[in-house]
Design a protein around this nucleic acid. Structure first.
Lengths: 355, 355
DNA sequence: GGGTTGTGAGAAACCGGTGTCATGGTTCAC
DNA sequence: GTGAACCATGACACCGGTTTCTCACAACCC
């Protein structure tokens, strides 16, 4: 494989030798540079010359070689996506948004999932950045909260934009969701539906998103004059099982809550199972709200009311920050999530006493 | 942006000027070519020289420029992933398998989702292939069944491997799952559990996967001496709602089936809803098997028994076919799916008469 | 009409690697 | 002792673009 191969050319033979800028120049009877000017829409160019060259380009089906361009320009057209898959649907939606922004440009999206728990995570990312030298990277939560990673990007000189639910970085490097406010709206909705005893399944410590959602919850409850006692809060780690366990603790309280807000959909689905196993009817006896609007939310029974990050729009914004920094980088980008109303929330059961 | 920028160098300034092969050669007092030999582990190289050069490389933190390599070698190190997202979890698992195979190599994974229904799909793919010139592409179902796409890859001279549930191409370009046999095992399992009246929710026409699953079903039923009447088969299009509608038709039959095999999990989830709305208990009165083992399967109630493609292994195999054709391309790669037993299948209810 | 300015286009160098071929020094056979 | 074979290494062209610098020529000025 690595030894000099005198038949090396044979490999490329499969492909009809692509025309190069030299072919175009020769046939159009101009210099390479002029062809380059046409490709790059240089303004100082005679209209007749341009037409002539364009005709030859079309005839030959010439497409500039991206590797040669990348070398000469000292930059390539790859956008890296760094994520530690919290949730398949979210990653895919994010990819969709990014690709929408990249459509029509010459940029492509390179994937680089990582393992948050691996001690070599940063080394792996460094290797990736050095080996591919992407133009920039987009960093999804939860690893977007890692400041060492951002420092690494700066050190290597790689552009980056972080997605987050808190103010992690300066505006040029951040696309932000206001989870706090979104959770507030979810709580408002529960209160408007008559609920007073509302439980919270919080996310794991150390996650900014979890903290924002927790604080948003407490703020909103306080605003409504409702207390958040320790028997109303349980912590999970964003998994189905942890949600089930957390819900079991919440449901032991007496009087038990009439509604639960879970910090993500997986945990909400777990809570639903826990309730069902205790014979508690959803939503008649217990209302439930999740967060993220994953595929699960729509497909469990009853369909889950949940908070949806406008992830596609956020992804688009993040991609634009990277590829058009001049126009966008200085504007703060904050997005507000929607509450997706499905049928897991009901009017507070009449028989539940005030607390 | 495109006009000549005399300060062009300023852009790269952020990055500490990366050392190049010339720097290494100068400091190590050897020629570029010798450094190149060290990098590429050429065997004809004096051990002392190698050590000397390696020391300088380490000291400088030199990493070869991938764009320059790509240009000189006339090939890059990008693997494209072409898919028309049938299912988020599957795409993500596939990505995981590919990345596992690519780990430690210099290849990176570039994403290119497409819209199967768009008339410009092929043009979009052509642009992608021409603009990025990936080393090769991996094609996921269902678009892997598109022969024009494969022809396009051959025309452009881009390597490709198709994933499929039927014999779509020759062994060098195919990684195959034996859905027919897997469905057979699912039916065996139902029959072993005492079921005789088994319904099928088939996938949409025109999909090879749907046909394979259909035929696997009919074969297995026939093998067990069971008939497959028209009242036992309904067609869906792989969506939740179509599964619900199909199940409603099947459940109208009298006597109604005691088990249903759905050609994917989404439709199985839809069938579950339909049954529940008719007050039919799952699995006591109706057993259910899906296909794909998506996240939904584990999170609905009751958890769904389903067939799981060994997608990660298949992805790994596909990636190896692309990057190590010499070792792997000629071997056929067929994978058999597992039956994941959860609780949506029960022993046939005693009160259901033989048919 | 000669000098100045401005404009479109080309020649050559360059980006950072790899391939080809030549070269000088050993070792070996005869 | 001499030529052949064999190594390890280097010089140089090349991949296909972009950038820099230069130049020819037309327009303009006085």
């Amino acid at each position: 494989m690595t030894r000099p191969d005198s038949e090396g050319k044979g490999v490329a033979r499969g492909r009809e030798a692509q025309p190069t800028i030299n072919d175009v120049a020769r046939i159009a009877e101009v210099s390479k540079k002029t062809v380059s000017r046409v490709i790059n829409r240089s303004p100082l160019l005679n209209e007749a010359t341009r037409k002539k060259v364009e005709a030859v380009i079309a005839e030959l089906g010439y497409v500039p070689n991206p590797q040669a361009r990348a070398l000469a320009l000292r930059r390539n057209f790859l956008i890296g996506l760094l994520h530690d898959n919290p949730n398949a649907q979210m990653v895919l939606n994010f990819q969709e948004g990014v690709l929408e922004a990249l459509r029509g440009t010459e940029f492509a999206l390179v994937l680089h999932p990582v393992d948050r728990h691996s001690p070599q995570m940063l080394d792996g990312i460094r290797t990736f950045l050095e080996q591919q030298r992407p133009y920039g990277v987009l960093i999804l939560p939860p690893i977007s909260e890692n400041d060492e990673l951002a420092a690494l990007c700066r050190e290597i000189g790689c552009g980056y934009v972080r997605m987050g639910s808190a103010h992690l970085d300066n505006d040029a490097h951040l696309v932000e969701s206001n989870d706090r406010q979104a959770v507030g709206h979810a709580v408002d909705y529960l209160v408007d539906s008559g609920h007073r005893r509302i439980g919270l399944i919080a996310g794991p410590e150390g996650f900014r998103s979890a903290r924002e959602r927790y604080e948003g919850f407490v703020e909103a409850m306080t605003r409504h004059g409702l207390s958040v006692g320790p028997e109303r809060v349980a912590r999970g780690n964003y998994t189905f099982d942890s949600g089930r366990a957390a819900a079991e603790r919440l449901l032991e309280a007496s009087p038990r809550p009439t509604a639960i807000f879970a910090s993500n959909d997986e945990m909400a689905a777990g809570a639903l199972h826990a309730a069902r196993q205790r014979g508690i009817e959803i939503p008649a006896e217990l209302s439930l709200i999740g967060f993220d609007d994953t595929a699960i939310a729509a497909h469990i029974w009853p369909p889950l009311t949940t908070v949806r990050w406008p992830i596609v729009s956020m992804a688009r914004a993040a991609a634009f920050k990277l590829i058009r920094p001049a126009e966008t980088a200085q504007q703060p980008s904050q997005f507000l999530s929607d509450l997706v109303r499905r049928s897991s929330v009901a009017i507070r059961p009449a028989d539940s006493g005030e607390d």
